[in-house]
Amino acid sequence: MVSPAHFIALSVILFVIGAVGVLVRRNAIVIFMSVELMLNAANLAFVTFARMHGTLDGQIIAFFVMVVAAAEVVVGLAILTAIFRARRSASVDDANLMKY
């Protein structure tokens, strides 16, 4: 019997993996992909809770999350290309001038 608890657990694990991925990777695009992973994990949780409550609101929210994630990816990657053209490097560690 696959209860919603299973899905929630999976969602949690994926979310944490995505969060750690944001922290340890240096390539900006991979960081972006980790964020996408976190969003997907959240979507899974939403859908699971929708099923649990027996309503469709969770699915609606997941749908909107997808849309917004798409828009975010578009803009974010556009920024990335602009930065890459200027600096020839996609590492986020290169932007480190705002320090003590």
């Binding site: 969060a19 944001v22 922290l23 340890v24 240096r26 986020v92 560690d93 932007a95 480190n96 001038l97 705002m98 320090k99 003590y100």
Partner: peptide, 17 residues
Amino acid sequence: VRRVENGFVRSYALSML
């Protein structure tokens, strides 16, 4: 404490997390 501001985005992300 000043040294926490090392300019790296990933450190800031870590502190946010």
